[in-house]
Computed example of a mutant assay.
Amino acid sequence: MECSSLRAGFRRAIASSHNPAKRRVLFHQPRRLYASHTEPEGPIRAAPPINFTSDPDQFNQPRAVLIPQRRNGRSNDRDQDDYDHLLRRIRIVPASPSYFTATPRYTDDLLHLSSLYRKHQVLPKVSGAQAPRVAWKTLQQYKTEIGEPVRQKGYGMLLGLLKRLNYIHPSLLPVEVQRALERYKRSVQPHLNQPKPIEIDNLGRARAVGRRKSSHAAVFVVEGEGECLINGRTLTDYFGRLHDRESAVWALKATQRLDKYNVWAIVRGGGTTGQAEALTLGVAKALLAHEPDLKPALRRAGCITRDPRRVERKKPGKLKARKMPAWVKR
Rank of each mutant, 00 (worst) to 15 (best):
K323G: 09
K22I: 15
H169F: 05
L242T: 15
K323T: 12
I90W: 11
P49S: 01
P20R: 11
L279W: 09
P308W: 03
Q194P: 08
M1H: 13
R233F: 14
H18W: 09
L235D: 04
K137N: 08
P195K: 04
A217K: 02
D77K: 15
P197D: 02
T305Q: 09
P190S: 04
S127P: 05
Q80D: 12
P149G: 02
R241N: 15
L279C: 07
V263C: 02
R241M: 14
M157H: 12
L111A: 14
R241F: 15
L66D: 10
E291R: 12
L66W: 10
H243G: 11
R24H: 15
P292H: 10
R309G: 01
N262R: 03
L298W: 00
Q69H: 13
D293W: 13
H169W: 04
S115I: 03
D109A: 10
R151L: 12
V65A: 07
P68L: 05
I67W: 12
T305P: 03
R151I: 07
R211P: 08
S54C: 08
K163L: 08
N262V: 03
D244L: 06
S16A: 13
H191R: 06
L66G: 08
A131S: 14
A15N: 14
F100Y: 10
Q141P: 04
